[in-house]
C-alpha cells in the first residue's frame, strides 16, 4: 500500500453531490476527492446508493445538486462533445457486467477499440486476447454472454473496461460472484493496472480483504444518514472509524481476517 503524495493533483472531485430518483433522495451532500493514481474504495450496506453514486459520477444520471469534476473540468457545465471526450478516458465495470448480449466476449472487448482507435482488425484481435488473458478468459473468447457464469461475465466486463487503457476506472462490485482465488487475482490486477498506467481507480466493494490489501482510501456511505459516515485509510478505519455503523462494518472483518495487514517497509 503506497502513501499518496498530497502534491498529486485531484482526478475526481465531488462537491456537495446529492442524488436520487424522481422524488426520492438517495444521497445528499456527498463530497470527496480522488488524486491521480489513487485507489479509492466506496463501501456501504446494500441499497445505500453506491451504484447510484457511480451512475451520477459517470453522468448516466443527472445529480440533484452539487458538482463533479474530472481532471479539473466540471462535467455539469460541459457540452455534449466535451462530456463524450471525458467518457472516452474512463472505463466502467457495471454491477451487472452489462455485456452486449448479441456479441461474443471477444467482440464485446473489441468494440470500444474499433470505435476509438485506428488499429487494424488483426491488431485489435491480438489486443483483445491480451486483455482477456489478463482476466483469465482467453478460452471463452468466442462464447456469448448468456453462456458464461456470473463471475466470468464480471471478468469479461473487466476486460472490456480495461480495453482502452483508461485514465479513470470505475468498478461496481468487481469481486462479487468471484471465488477467493479470482478475487485475489483481481486485487493483483487492480494494483498492476495502477502500477503500469497510473490509473485512478474507484471501486465499489464489500470485500474487506480487498479493502485491506489494495485500497489507499475508503469512504463509507450510510443508508439512513444518506451521506458519507466515515472515511480514511483502511487500517485507520478498522482501528477506529468514529461511527457505530461504520465500526460494525469494518469490525465484521476482524473475525475472519484478523488484524489488518501491516505496511511493508
Amino acid at each position: 500500500m503506497s502513501e499518496v503524495d498530497p502534491q498529486i493533483p485531484f482526478m475526481i472531485e465531488v462537491r456537495g453531490l446529492s442524488c436520487g430518483y424522481r422524488d426520492t433522495v438517495i444521497l445528499r451532500d456527498v463530497s470527496f476527492s480522488v488524486r491521480r493514481g489513487e485507489i479509492y474504495f466506496v463501501v456501504g450496506r446494500s441499497g445505500c446508493g453506491k451504484s447510484t453514486l457511480l451512475r451520477n459520477l459517470i453522468g448516466l444520471e443527472t445529480p440533484l445538486a452539487g458538482e463533479v469534476c474530472f481532471d479539473g473540468e466540471n462535467v455539469g457545465n460541459a457540452g455534449h462533445e466535451t462530456r463524450r471526450a471525458m467518457l472516452r478516458r474512463m472505463g466502467v465495470l457495471y454491477q451487472s457486467a452489462a455485456l452486449w448480449s448479441t456479441m461474443t466476449v471477444a467482440e464485446n472487448v473489441a468494440l470500444p477499440l474499433e470505435e476509438h482507435t485506428t488499429l487494424s482488425r488483426r491488431e485489435i484481435r491480438e489486443l483483445v486476447f491480451v486483455k482477456l488473458g489478463m482476466v483469465g478468459l482467453a478460452a471463452a473468447a468466442d462464447r456469448y454472454p448468456a453462456e458464461l457464469s456470473g463471475g466470468m461475465r464480471k471478468r469479461a466486463g473487466l476486460a472490456r473496461a480495461l480495453g482502452l487503457d483508461p485514465e479513470i476506472l470505475f468498478f461496481d462490485e468487481p469481486s462479487a460472484g468471484l471465488d477467493p482465488v479470482s478475487a485475489r487475482n483481481l486485487d493483483h490486477l487492480i494494483l498492476q493496472t495502477r502500477e503500469s498506467l497510473g490509473t485512478t481507480i474507484l471501486v465499489v466493494s464489500h470485500d474487506l480483504e480487498s479493502i485491506c490489501t489494495v485500497a489507499d482510501h475508503v469512504i463509507m456511505l450510510g443508508r439512513d444518514e444518506k451521506t458519507v459516515i466515515a472515511e480514511g485509510r483502511p487500517r485507520d478505519l478498522i482501528r477506529d472509524s468514529g461511527n457505530p455503523h461504520a465500526s460494525e462494518f469494518f469490525q465484521s472483518g476482524l473475525i475472519t481476517f484478523g488484524e489488518p495487514k501491516k505496511e511493508s517497509p
Binding site: 451512475r55 459517470i58 448516466l60 463524450r84 467518457l87 472516452r88 474512463m90 466502467v92 457495471y94 454491477q95 451487472s96 452489462a98 455485456l99 452486449w100 448480449s101 448479441t102 468494440l111 470500444p112 470505435e115 476509438h116 472490456r160
Partner: peptide, 20 residues
C-alpha cells in the same frame, strides 16, 4: 423487445460510457 432488454441489462448505459 431487443432494445428494451438491452436497456434493462444496462447495455445501453455501457454503450454511452464507452463513447458509442
Amino acid at each position: 423487445a431487443q432494445i428494451g432488454n438491452m436497456k434493462m441489462n444496462e447495455e445501453i448505459d455501457a454503450l454511452e460510457t464507452l463513447g458509442v
